[in-house]
Computed example of a mutant assay.
Amino acid sequence: MNTTISEAKSHPVVSSEHWLSERKTLLAREKELMRLHDQVATERRALPWERVEKDYVFDTAEGRRTLSDLFDGRRQLLVQHFMFGPGWEQGCPSCSFMADHTDGMNVHLAQRDITVIAISRAPLADIERFRQRMGWQFRWVSSHGSDFNHDFNVSFTPEQLAKGEVYYNYGIRPFPAEEAPGVSVFYKDDAGQVFHTYSTYGRGVEVMMGAYNMMDLTPKGRDERDVPHKMEWVRHHDRYTSGQGPAAASCCATRT
Rank of each mutant, 00 (worst) to 15 (best):
R133Y: 09
M134K: 06
M134P: 02
G135M: 05
G135W: 08
Q137K: 14
F138R: 03
R139I: 04
R139G: 11
W140N: 13
V141N: 15
S142R: 11
S143M: 04
G145T: 06
G145F: 08
S146V: 05
S146G: 10
D147T: 10
D147A: 13
D151M: 01
N153G: 04
N153F: 11
S155C: 04
F156I: 12
P158K: 02
P158W: 00
E159K: 03
Q160T: 06
L161T: 02
A162Q: 11
G164F: 03
V166W: 07
V166T: 07
V166G: 09
Y167K: 02
Y167T: 04
N169Y: 03
N169P: 04
N169L: 02
N169Q: 06
N169I: 02
N169C: 08
Y170W: 09
Y170N: 08
I172A: 08
F175R: 01
F175Y: 14
P176H: 00
P176M: 00
A177C: 08
E179Y: 09
P181A: 12
V183P: 14
V183E: 08
S184Y: 01
V185C: 15
F186D: 08
F186L: 12
D189M: 05
D189H: 04
D190W: 12
A191K: 15
G192E: 10
Q193E: 15
Q193S: 15
F195Y: 15
F195C: 10
F195G: 13
H196C: 01
H196M: 00
T197I: 12
T200Q: 04
R203W: 07
G204Y: 01
G204T: 04
M208E: 06
G210W: 07
G210A: 09
Y212H: 15
N213A: 08
M215A: 09
D216W: 13
T218H: 06
K220D: 03
K220H: 02
G221A: 02
G221P: 01
E224G: 10
D226R: 09
V227S: 04
V227T: 06
K230L: 14
K230R: 15
E232R: 14
E232D: 14
W233H: 13
